[in-house]
């Protein structure tokens, strides 16, 4: 049953690791401001007969950076896709801040959200995809200003200026007029990161952002994301198979298996001394590859 509790009950992470992190490197292009937390409450997601998430509960504190790990099919990506409203919720409630993502208050209870509510809620969330998903019919600049101008209602000059700042941050100002197909995978992903940030999200979702990249391009993108994570107060949810990256970027790691959390804790603990057998097996399998 959906509860009408609010995010005021969201606990702080067990081990805040001295967060918020050093903000001296803060870039003007990065979003700042009050950051919401996230809470999953008995969330169920099925694909046909296949139950991907079974009554999942977990909380992410405002500004917390969480990495989701686990074998494929364990439901990690589904969590991100639910938060981005790319998949529909089957049961339970997802809270972003003190508002339910997939529901609208009606009377004492909650009713399914309409497109207007989803549009409102999506303003807080941004996502970077595994396959970049840049628009091939637009050049880099238009990819970056399309959302800010059409959705956020920025003036074109403003949007272009912000796009330049963001491109400067990701090191691709010289590619401003280029076409996505003329860029390497790493460059495309940098543009995609800039595009997500241009929408000024408070929550950023990273869905295996380096797994489609050639090995030599992975580190650059990871370094960029680590800098962004340190310099902003975004709430970050990250699905990755790169354990070094997970260690670098996150305050807390959640280990998933079969739609449920098997183990959670700070990265040092999960990667250093995991207590659960399934976590040990998984980490071993990852290292073996």
């Amino acid at each position: 049953m959906p509860s009408s509790d609010t995010m005021s009950e969201v606990p702080t992470p067990e081990d805040p690791q001295g967060a918020p992190m050093d903000k001296t490197a803060a870039d003007g292009a990065l979003p700042h401001g009050s950051t919401p937390g996230i809470r999953f409450e008995k969330v169920v997601k099925r694909f046909g007969d296949n139950i991907v998430l079974r009554e999942l509960n977990f909380t992410v504190a405002p500004g917390e950076r969480v990495t989701l790990i686990g074998p494929s099919g364990s439901g990690k990506t589904t969590i991100l896709r639910l938060l981005m409203t790319l998949e529909k919720l089957d049961d339970g409630v997802i809270w972003i801040g003190d508002r339910p993502l997939w529901h609208m208050p009606r009377g004492d209870g909650l009713a399914p959200a309409n497109e207007k509510h989803l549009h409102e809620m999506r303003k807080q969330v941004g996502m970077v995809f595994q396959q970049f998903n840049l628009f091939p019919n637009m050049n880099v600049l238009r990819n970056l200003i399309e959302g800010p101008v059409r959705v956020l209602g920025l003036s074109k000059d403003e949007a272009v200026e912000r796009a330049r700042e963001l491109l400067d941050m990701v090191g691709l100002v010289d590619k401003i007029d280029a076409h996505p197909t003329q860029l390497s995978g790493g460059q495309q992903q940098r543009v995609a990161i800039a595009r997500a940030l241009a929408m000024q999200p408070k929550v950023l979702l990273l869905d295996e952002v380096t797994s489609a990249l050639d090995p030599e391009l992975v580190v650059g993108v990871q370094d960029l994301l680590r800098d962004i994570a340190r310099a902003s107060d975004l709430t970050l949810l990250c699905v990755t198979h790169e354990m070094h990256f997970a260690k670098d970027i996150s305050d807390r790691v959640l280990m998933f298996d079969k739609g449920q959390i098997v183990e959670e804790g700070p990265p040092e603990q999960i990667f250093g001394e995991p207590t659960e057998q399934r976590t040990r097996d998984f980490l071993q399998a990852i290292l073996a590859t």
Binding site: M84, T85, L86, E115, H119, R122, K123, V125, G126, M127, F129, Q131, N133, L134, F135, P136, N137, E146, G147, R150, V151, R195, A196, M199
Partner: peptide, 25 residues
């Protein structure tokens, strides 16, 4: 489909998804 998903992630309205991204492609 990935293009459609990107338009959702950028919070475009259904009309904008069609006219600015899907149809031009």
């Amino acid at each position: 489909t990935a293009q459609y998903e990107a338009t959702v992630a950028l919070n475009m309205l259904p009309r904008q998804r069609m006219w600015r991204v899907l149809l031009p492609q």
